[in-house]
Computed example of a mutant assay.
Amino acid sequence: MGQTARVSAVVWTAAGSLLAWLWLLLGQGFFWRTDVRLPQRREPDVWPPMCVVVPARDEAAVLPAALPSLLGQDYPGRAEVFLVDDGSTDGTGDLARGLGRRHGGLPLTVASPGEPPAGWTGKLWAVRHGMALARAREPEYLLLTDADIAHAPDSLRELVAAARSGGFDVVSQMARLRVESVWERLVVPAFVYFFAQLYPFRRIGRRGTRTAAAAGGCVLLRADAAAQARIPDAIRHAVIDDVALARAVKGTGGRVWLGLADRVDSVRPYPRLHDLWRMVSRSAYAQLRHHPVVLAGTVAGLALVYLVPPAALAAGAAAGSTAAAVAGGLAWLIMAGTFEPMLRYYGQPWWLAPLLPFTAFLYLLMTVDSAVQHYRGRGAAWKGRTYARPEAVPDEG
């Protein structure tokens, strides 16, 4: 009787996982497709003025590979770059000035806002300072981009053309992250896959939907929409600032588009598992709103969706339960099948797809570690700063 009950529990659990995957396959905005690229666009007759804002903190290692790509943009209208040095200790500001003199191109201003006041993240304080400098030039669009992002020469004109043609207030591209080390190959494509699962790109750009997200490495923002949504003041304490920005703009009636990039690339290396672990764990618990019940539900959901299929297949085969083995195997097959397009986008072999349960287990551990670090007072730590949860931040009224 006990053996039968255990087998029955495995069958029902495997069936639940299979149902979850059938719903994800068909009912979650086709999140697994990788064909959401810049929408159809036509070049405007008159190119609007725009400014690029680059917050940078201790970015001397990556700046030489990224900043020249912005300075070398072939944008037909008036454009300039504002790099905001956020208290760097590695000479980021001086390096940026030197790169500006050496490469020429778009005008470059390097400034520093000083330490952020209570209630602000360092990045958003730097963005605020850069946007204030940019407003004096009266731009129609602002490109918020990170210091490790390299843009193709036509990136600005393509983004502006897409925004103008589609009537979007935000056009964001998820930069293609580096995948060279073993751990990058395992973890990075899954990172983007999980993000798309949470925020299906097709839903973001569709009118009348509440789904909103952006990718902080490349966010084109209409200046009037930023003012209406009070960006960045309204999201000043947000650790996951790109999603918060998109929600704020969409909440005021703005239109948001997010898709995968073709020629916008991150040059930041994550050679070790430790580096990737820090990237994920620093904000994972913030994504769950620092709520232990949501954490428990997330862990259970990850286990059901990603860990149960291979476990059920193995348990069913060992116990002679065809139902458990078939349900687990089908769920695992759907999982791998939906992951393969993202691997192809990143130029990785298909046989990495069945390893997704292992990578998901790593993400589960990273999420738990994020919560542990939060309760130890080291949550949301990045480059020497640790940020409080929003409820602990004093409101400016």
Score class of each variant (00 low, 15 high):
residue 1 M to A: 13
residue 5 A to P: 05
residue 6 R to F: 14
residue 12 W to M: 14
residue 13 T to A: 15
residue 15 A to E: 04
residue 21 W to K: 00
residue 22 L to S: 09
residue 23 W to P: 00
residue 26 L to A: 14
residue 36 V to N: 03
residue 40 Q to G: 12
residue 50 M to N: 00
residue 56 A to L: 13
residue 57 R to G: 13
residue 58 D to C: 13
residue 61 A to M: 08
residue 67 L to H: 09
residue 68 P to C: 02
residue 69 S to L: 08
residue 78 R to L: 10
residue 82 F to W: 07
residue 84 V to A: 12
residue 88 S to D: 11
residue 92 T to P: 13
residue 96 A to D: 06
residue 97 R to L: 03
residue 104 G to V: 08
residue 106 L to A: 03
residue 107 P to D: 08
residue 111 A to H: 01
residue 112 S to P: 00
residue 115 E to A: 15
residue 115 E to K: 15
residue 115 E to S: 15
residue 116 P to L: 10
residue 116 P to A: 15
residue 119 G to N: 06
residue 124 L to P: 05
residue 134 A to W: 04
residue 135 R to V: 08
residue 136 A to F: 06
residue 137 R to C: 11
residue 142 L to E: 00
residue 149 I to K: 01
residue 151 H to Y: 14
residue 155 S to H: 06
residue 161 A to P: 03
residue 168 F to M: 00
residue 172 S to Q: 08
residue 172 S to A: 12
residue 174 M to H: 15
residue 177 L to K: 14
residue 196 A to L: 13
residue 196 A to V: 12
residue 197 Q to G: 08
residue 198 L to F: 12
residue 198 L to C: 10
residue 207 R to H: 10
residue 208 G to Q: 11
residue 208 G to C: 09
residue 210 R to G: 09
residue 214 A to D: 11
residue 218 C to A: 05
residue 223 A to D: 09
residue 223 A to G: 01
residue 230 R to L: 11
residue 235 I to W: 01
residue 236 R to T: 12
residue 236 R to A: 15
residue 241 D to Q: 07
residue 242 D to A: 12
residue 246 A to M: 12
residue 253 G to I: 04
residue 255 R to L: 02
residue 261 A to F: 09
residue 264 V to G: 02
residue 265 D to S: 14
residue 268 R to A: 11
residue 274 H to I: 06
residue 276 L to R: 01
residue 277 W to V: 04
residue 279 M to G: 03
residue 290 H to L: 14
residue 291 H to S: 15
residue 293 V to N: 07
residue 297 G to E: 12
residue 298 T to V: 06
residue 301 G to Q: 09
residue 302 L to I: 15
residue 308 V to P: 11
residue 309 P to W: 05
residue 313 L to D: 07
residue 314 A to P: 07
residue 314 A to K: 04
residue 316 G to Q: 05
residue 318 A to V: 11
residue 321 S to Y: 12
residue 334 I to A: 00
residue 334 I to F: 04
residue 338 T to Y: 04
residue 340 E to M: 06
residue 341 P to N: 02
residue 344 R to S: 07
residue 352 L to H: 02
residue 352 L to R: 15
residue 356 L to R: 01
residue 361 F to M: 11
residue 363 Y to S: 03
residue 364 L to G: 08
residue 371 A to Y: 12
residue 374 H to K: 12
residue 377 G to P: 06
residue 377 G to W: 12
residue 391 E to S: 15
residue 392 A to F: 07
